[in-house]
Simulated scan of single mutants.
Amino acid sequence: MFNFIWGGVFVAVNFALFVLNYRLFGRKGLYSWICFATVLANIQVVKTIEMFGIVMTLGNTIYTTIYMCTDLLNEKYGTKEARKAVWFGFFTLIASTVMMQLALVFTPQAEGGTAQEAMETIFGLMPRIAAGSLCAYFVSQLLDVQVFGYLKRRFPVRSQFWIRVNGSTLVSQMVDSLVFCTIAFAGEYSWDIWLQILLTTYALKFVISIAATPAMYLARSFSPKED
């Protein structure tokens, strides 16, 4: 119950900061959010928690806000801007991974160098995990932009925004989960365990994506001065 309560607070804070960021900084704020969210998501995913008997990783909430960014950009500024944001995030993810791997190469101070082990735990990702994360992000984000664009043409009415947001996110999140779990875990676990990881990961993303809809409507109502 403790994790459930704090999980609700955690989700609410993520969405509130996302909306505030757009309100204050507009389109540039969405670009900056994508860059830092891609990094934080891959740090938070290292920590696992248990909720209602299900083991899950952190990082899913802030990772969902990346889809919120591209969908909001697509809605208000067009597909080209949303696709550009995907490339921003992809470059940030690669650059941060490379830089932190180089940082781990340095020999720490013999006495008092206590940060090395902690940094290796967080940033010393296994090759398959890192490859899975990069591929899943790239494929699913570009797919999200395309699906949202299609739904925008198919359901163009302003009140149908929820269809565009949830439809594109739920499709792309499934692909994201499938690509990541296949690259990172296929062969490492038995089929039934692998399937359980895939389904629980997607189910959590599904719930968070639905919960994000009111925040998306609120963010869309703003007309930031920066724009």
Rank of each mutant, 00 (worst) to 15 (best):
D144K: 14
L143P: 05
F52R: 10
T107L: 05
S172D: 00
R154K: 11
F2Q: 12
W194T: 00
A110F: 06
T64L: 15
G124S: 07
G53K: 14
V98D: 10
V147A: 04
K28A: 07
A130Y: 05
V157I: 01
D227C: 11
V207D: 05
M1E: 10
I210A: 11
L204W: 09
K152D: 06
V171P: 04
V139Q: 06
I43T: 13
W87R: 04
Q196I: 05
I34D: 07
A103L: 05
K225V: 04
Q160A: 13
V13Y: 13
I193G: 02
F91A: 13
Y202T: 08
C135A: 15
L104M: 15
F2K: 11
T121C: 08
C135F: 12
S32N: 06
E75N: 12
L17H: 02
M126V: 15
I34A: 13
W33N: 10
M126G: 15
M68H: 05
S96K: 11
G26F: 01
M99C: 15
N14K: 03
Q116D: 12
E188M: 14
I49P: 09
A12L: 02
K152G: 12
F180R: 13
A16T: 05
N14V: 03
S96V: 15
F4K: 08
V39M: 14
V171T: 05
V175K: 05
K47A: 12
R153P: 07
E50M: 10
Y217Q: 11
I122H: 01
R220S: 03
E75A: 11
S96G: 10
F25K: 06
M119V: 10
T114F: 11
Q116S: 11
T70N: 10
E75P: 13
W33L: 14
L218T: 09
A118W: 01
F206D: 00
Q44S: 12
D144N: 15
A219T: 00
A95K: 12
P156H: 04
T114K: 12
V19E: 03
A186V: 03
A212S: 02
G78L: 11
R158E: 04
T79Q: 15
V39D: 08
V13F: 13
Y67K: 07
F90C: 02
V175P: 02
G167K: 13
N14L: 01
S32F: 06
N42L: 12
K76W: 11
A12W: 00
A184T: 14
Y67M: 10
R158G: 03
D192T: 00
S168Q: 03
K28W: 02
V86R: 03
L134D: 10
N42V: 13
V11D: 06
Y63S: 14
A115H: 14
A184H: 09
E50V: 09
D227F: 11
T70G: 12
I210G: 06
P214R: 00
D176E: 05
V157S: 04
A211H: 00
Y202N: 07
I66H: 08
S140M: 07
G26P: 00
K205N: 06
L204R: 06
V179T: 01
L204N: 07
T121Y: 13
I210L: 14
G149W: 13
G78K: 14
D192K: 02
